[in-house]
Amino acid sequence: MSRPVDIDAAVVAELVEEQFPRWAHLPVRAVARQGWDNRTFRLGEDLSVRLPVAESYATAVQKESRALEFLAGRLPVAVPSVVALGEPGHGYPFPWSIRRWLDGDTVDRVAGLDRVRLAVDLGGLLRVLRSLPVHAGQAAGRHSFFRGSHPSVYSDDVHAALQRLDGTVDTEICRSVWFAATSSVWESSPVWFHGDVAVGNLLVSDGGLSAMIDFGTCGVGDPACDLVMAWTYFEGDARDAFRDAAGLDAATWRRARGWALWKALVTLSGGSGPGGVDSRRVLHEVLTSPL
């Protein structure tokens, strides 16, 4: 991946003033918690500006805009609404977007959340997403970082991570889980997937799931990748409730477990994203909770 670009509020304000002068009077401020692929800024009270940090993420801007236009009103929760698409300028090299601001807190910031309720809500949301016509979606591939593809696309990463982690993780069980994950395929027609169902991409209001955001890796293909919260967040009764609400067959859940395993291993081995205690906890859940 190319080196991430630096983005600050001053650059965002210049882009808005030049390309969308009707909003130039609105104050620009960075949101408190930023994502990995994009930087987000509030534009006044009702809008936000979303800017990819690298070229590999910039290719999703147009795709995500088309997908969100199709998905709006078809899901039981809100999704971002794109109101304008921007172009490179003022030293910023990528396309970007302005969206309606969605109220709510991300799941990871809500204390005392009823996880069983969230599990049921999320499973139901994913069922609806899978039921929608796929003509507006893009087939899984490089644009989705191969989410929605067969997990074996990352087999080399898994084996390399296990070599680096040898002696610190149970490599035998890891290989067994990975083999099970890669021994089946999605045999039905391709369906919609979000591609990054995570606590930071789900908004909660009044204790219930109210919105799903960050559709940059969405597409159509195998929905197994959307089930990883069974190991990254849910436990016990909530995990069982998520499995029941989301549906899908045992083979798809094995592939989902493989997706969770891959991410935990490459993060722990230093190959992708931030590492730390959480990835080791996720790996423990993956290896001890097969579903």
Rank of each mutant, 00 (worst) to 15 (best):
residue 212 M to C: 15
residue 228 V to W: 11
residue 208 G to N: 03
residue 226 D to A: 11
residue 202 L to F: 03
residue 242 F to H: 03
residue 175 R to P: 02
residue 181 A to T: 12
residue 231 W to M: 12
residue 205 S to D: 08
residue 182 T to M: 02
residue 121 D to N: 13
residue 155 S to Q: 13
residue 233 Y to F: 14
residue 241 A to L: 14
residue 128 V to E: 15
residue 218 C to N: 05
residue 162 L to A: 07
residue 256 A to K: 10
residue 255 R to D: 05
residue 169 V to C: 03
residue 260 A to T: 10
residue 172 E to Y: 04
residue 236 G to L: 11
residue 243 R to Y: 06
residue 215 F to Y: 08
residue 224 A to I: 11
residue 224 A to C: 07
residue 198 A to F: 14
residue 189 S to D: 15
residue 231 W to D: 13
residue 176 S to F: 01
residue 121 D to Y: 02
residue 243 R to I: 13
residue 188 S to I: 01
residue 239 R to M: 06
residue 154 Y to M: 12
residue 189 S to L: 10
residue 203 L to D: 12
residue 128 V to W: 06
residue 132 L to M: 04
residue 176 S to Q: 09
residue 191 V to C: 08
residue 251 A to R: 15
residue 151 P to L: 08
residue 183 S to N: 14
residue 120 V to I: 11
residue 122 L to W: 05
residue 144 S to P: 01
residue 152 S to A: 14
residue 212 M to W: 04
residue 250 A to E: 15
residue 172 E to A: 15
residue 227 L to R: 06
residue 127 R to H: 05
residue 223 P to Q: 13
residue 171 T to D: 05
residue 188 S to M: 03
residue 141 G to P: 08
residue 151 P to I: 12
residue 126 L to M: 01
residue 174 C to I: 12
residue 204 V to F: 03
residue 170 D to V: 01
residue 184 S to V: 12
residue 202 L to R: 07
residue 125 L to K: 02
residue 144 S to T: 09
residue 204 V to L: 02
residue 175 R to A: 15
residue 257 R to A: 08
residue 128 V to T: 15
residue 137 G to C: 03
residue 155 S to R: 14
residue 233 Y to N: 01
residue 129 L to R: 07
residue 149 S to V: 09
residue 140 A to C: 00
residue 218 C to E: 06
residue 216 G to S: 09
residue 230 A to I: 01
residue 208 G to S: 10
residue 252 T to V: 15
residue 235 E to R: 10
residue 140 A to W: 01
residue 244 D to P: 00
residue 210 S to F: 05
residue 198 A to V: 09
residue 124 G to C: 08
residue 176 S to K: 08
residue 242 F to D: 04
residue 220 V to C: 07
residue 208 G to K: 09
residue 197 V to S: 13
residue 177 V to I: 14
residue 178 W to D: 05
residue 122 L to Y: 04
residue 177 V to C: 10
residue 119 A to S: 04
residue 223 P to Y: 12
residue 225 C to A: 15
residue 227 L to A: 14
residue 242 F to M: 06
residue 137 G to P: 00
residue 166 D to L: 04
residue 189 S to N: 08
residue 228 V to A: 13
residue 123 G to F: 03
residue 129 L to W: 07
residue 134 V to I: 14
residue 169 V to G: 02
residue 208 G to M: 02
residue 183 S to R: 14
residue 244 D to T: 13
residue 219 G to M: 06
residue 177 V to T: 10
residue 250 A to W: 07
residue 147 R to L: 08
residue 232 T to Q: 03
residue 187 E to H: 04
residue 124 G to M: 05
residue 248 L to D: 12
residue 218 C to W: 13
residue 179 F to D: 09
residue 244 D to A: 13
residue 219 G to D: 02
residue 121 D to R: 00
residue 184 S to H: 14
residue 185 V to C: 09
residue 119 A to H: 03
residue 220 V to P: 00
residue 161 A to V: 10
residue 128 V to M: 07
residue 203 L to R: 11
residue 204 V to E: 02
residue 161 A to R: 07
residue 137 G to F: 01
residue 231 W to C: 13
residue 167 G to T: 10
residue 144 S to Y: 02
residue 178 W to M: 05
residue 235 E to G: 00
residue 143 H to P: 01
residue 193 F to G: 04
residue 197 V to D: 07
residue 179 F to P: 00
residue 259 W to Y: 15
residue 190 P to W: 10
residue 239 R to W: 04
residue 180 A to N: 13
residue 221 G to D: 10
residue 224 A to H: 05
residue 176 S to D: 10
residue 178 W to I: 02
residue 184 S to C: 14
residue 254 R to I: 01
residue 154 Y to W: 15
